[in-house]
Design a protein around this nucleic acid. Structure first.
Lengths: 232, 232
DNA sequence: CAGAACTGTGTCTAGAGTACACTGTGTCTG
DNA sequence: CAGACACAGTGTACTCTAGACACAGTTCTG
């Protein structure tokens, strides 16, 4: 919890401008943005304090005046990278349409910042934007006969689906991820069809179309709808 | 793809015993098992070649005779850690019961080896056990009116749900993960209820019971069932 | 005994983070 | 109002950890 505490402070607390001393040449925003640029371009492994500093025209030690360490920098990058949630209350349509939009927008964010997937496993600090996303989803489901716990569970399930598909897409390079996935599995399977017969048959039948996100969302939302309808 | 290729060879190809030279003191299995023990106990960050070697009573360079590098070691650990899939064909009941069991068993594996979640984001090599899990799921759905692509999508969606809940559980320490999650969110929210009103209300109403896995699985499988019933 | 296969020692490199000196800037005091 | 001073920002030099390579030494079998 120790590291998360410092990250929480950075994410949530307003930065107070210091009075005395030289003017800062950098800002948290500049540093986070630069970090995001690097991670977008070359992945999280390529994100080093050195490289962030270089791009900003300073030495890495300058960064430690703004950010306690790399973990906190990444936490900042995540919250800024995911960005503000969509404003669903302005949307027409019921909870289903809203959640569908919500999930697809989240997918787009993850697709734009694939490193955010790696960076968001395990214990970590939650930022305001991230909590904002959750707020939007819960707001969309408020008023339905679902309990509070169930509302959260729906949101979590949707996040799971979005993350999973985004992960596959990221692993397979950007274009035609499912096609690539099929090909990769076919490559492994060739010569071993007897060991994985059902999988081989299914792959032969697979169209390789990019429908996984749609399909999963539909299943989940159908399931939620069924529950809501039953309660009404 | 370069690293994955060497990992694939290690995962799939039979190791040929060498004739000449001293007897190897170690084996791939011993090394992978030791790695799993360390990661289980202290997390993936604590997994160093040094530490694996120490526990085996050798220097780290000895390991490089068996494993090309750390990436490949982790790939081995994943496949061994996830282990063999459950044998669903022996089960009574239809596809739904089978998939439910499949998902819950997968959850148990991830719960036992939380580091496997971190280690399975991004491009990586797929091992025989992992493919075996996919085989079981597809076999369970073969015979339903779903297309090949849809069958794979169902499996992927389930994996997403399992991973998501396992991730939350891992992040929150083992016992009562959802309770802990609620508490953590409440802590962040306190004093900011005006900014996240729906979330605050929902949290106040949340029972904190560990039902997220059940709930999500039910939604997903309900959705799949709806689709199957419609086609019949 | 020759050659191949294991293992250990020493070394290199990258990257996170610390210690500390130096420099600039506002505030406080005589 | 001028100078001292405290404090903030930045840079240089260093430590520490960890993965990986080179190569010497050792062991075993054909």
């Amino acid at each position: 919890m120790a590291v998360e505490a410092t990250a929480m402070a950075l994410l949530w607390e307003q930065q107070t401008a210091s009075k005395r001393g030289p003017k800062p040449t950098l800002s948290l925003d500049m540093i986070a943005t630069t970090g995001i640029e690097i991670a977008d371009a070359d992945g999280l492994a390529a994100l080093t304090m050195q490289r962030v500093a270089e791009r900003l025209g300073v030495t890495k030690m300058a960064l430690y005046r703004y950010v306690p360490g790399k973990v906190e920098l990444v936490a900042l990058m995540i919250d800024r990278g995911i960005g503000e949630p969509p404003r669903l209350e302005r949307m027409t349509g019921g909870w289903r349409r809203k959640l569908d939009t919500w999930a697809r927008q989240m997918f787009d964010r993850f697709a734009g910042h694939p490193w955010a997937l790696e960076a968001t496993v395990g214990a970590r600090a939650i930022g305001p934007n991230e909590l904002g996303w959750l707020e939007e989803a819960t707001a969309a489901l408020t008023g339905t006969p679902l309990t509070g716990g169930e509302i959260l569970d729906v949101a979590v399930t949707l996040i799971g689906q979005v993350r999973m598909i985004a992960q596959q897409a990221a692993a397979m390079g950007t274009r035609d991820p499912e096609q690539a996935m099929d090909e990769a599995m076919n490559a492994v399977l060739s010569g071993r069809e007897d060991r994985f017969p059902a999988l081989a048959a299914v792959l032969a039948d697979s169209a390789g179309k990019n429908q996984a996100l749609d399909f999963g969302l539909r299943c989940i939302l159908d399931g939620v709808q069924l529950l809501i309808d039953r309660r009404n």
